[in-house]
Amino acid sequence: MKILIVEDEKDLVDVTCKYLKKEDFVCEFAYNFFDAEDKLITYNYDIVILDINLPDGSGMDLLKIIKKQSPSTGVLIVSARNSLDDKLKGLDLGADDYITKPFHLAELNSRVKSLIRRQKFKGQDSITFHEIEIDPTAKTVKVNQEAIELTRKEYNLLLYFITNKDRVLTKESIAEHLWGDSIDMADNFDFIYTHMRNLRRKLKKKGATDYLQTIYGLGYKFGD
């Protein structure tokens, strides 16, 4: 899962990013409105942690952009302001949750996770696609009730495919989602094949149908 933090306090971004990376999220950040807008226009995020007060603009305007561009992105508003107005306005504009500064990183983590659950897994604790079952909390995968051993990258790859099932995903977007925004500077994405091949092999071994299709010239699709 890829998260964007929009926050002008660099130290806070640093700490939050480190924490979320440990929790196995791909974490991107922007220190101001301008950079955040650039990133939101160019890349996709699962969750945006958004500070309302930015030096060069209002987080509310970014919220509008997010909701217009990709409605499925979960937005968590962060602000030092304890004003009810801001809270209501943010939620009205489509923010999904709200957290007030200062906050505990553990709380932020829980809120992000619950947001992902609501946003991506339709509120369920686990996602099931035919014989494949993913438990996002425990980060385990079962095929036909049998546990399957996956590397971190393979797990994230499978999760990305399942949450975007029946969609053609380009190599670029897969790479960006799993490795972060800066990967778009790479000249080729051949390294994805290795992970893809291993994931396929492991799923097949446990008797799963091969749902992963290569769409000529475009990318990959996971689905029936």
């Binding site: 380009t170 010239g217 475009l218 990318g219």
Partner: peptide
Amino acid sequence: EYLMQSKNLKHEEKKLISDIYSASK
């Protein structure tokens, strides 16, 4: 990316889309 999702794309069309996509990237 939206166009890629449409079914029944011809081989040549996929190639064209792919080329435009990588050029824009």
